[in-house]
Design a protein around this nucleic acid. Structure first.
Lengths: 89, 89
DNA sequence: TTTATATATTTAAAAGTTTCAATGTATTGT
DNA sequence: ACAATACATTGAAACTTTTAAATATATAAA
């Protein structure tokens, strides 16, 4: 993976709220409701939306629309590539 | 590793210049001269100093004074813990 | 001991990030 | 169709980061 992409992913991971979002996501098999997440993190809805966007843009996670809701999944390939690039830096 | 520390390390890794510094460091067995690094990255000396400080503060690297120069080494434990925490997030 | 070299610190400007109120859009239930 | 719900976008304030000029400190070399 290029350093530019590593930078982008590290940026996505460099905020405690986004880390908590990822953790929450993982523990709920990608099912995550905005309102619930808002109260979990004590943030307003646009903030959650902004954070999720950063995670999606980093390509760490995929977003699938399911009616009114979204489901999320880790992009394992990108995730692995990030960890491997760092390991071999 | 606590999420707060993951955040700090990710922040340290979230700048292309710091990634290049780490890479350069690794490829030179931790021997790194400031001036050389300045011209490599096209940055002024205080900027390099600032970036290295962030890496040291994140505990990703150790700094050993050797006369007028510094030598650096990866803090393997912290590095591993970071990668493992993310892997198991 | 003076001078040169390597790196750190302070300060301040410019750029980027985080947050949320207000508002917009898409989907579902009545 | 209308109201309710889930989420996105815009715009602006507060805060943080990046950068470098100026200056300081530590070590080595002459």
């Amino acid at each position: 993976m290029e350093l530019k992409q590593v930078e982008k992913i590290a940026k996505a991971l460099s905020d405690i709220n986004r880390l908590k979002i990822l953790q929450h996501m993982q523990r709920h098999q990608g099912k995550m409701e905005c309102n619930e997440t808002c109260s979990l993190l004590n943030l307003a809805q646009p903030s959650i939306s902004h954070h999720i966007k950063k995670l999606v843009e980093s390509e760490l996670i995929n977003q699938h629309k399911e009616g009114r809701y979204y489901n999320y999944s880790l992009n394992d390939k990108v995730w692995e590539a990030y960890l491997n690039t760092l390991k071999k830096l």
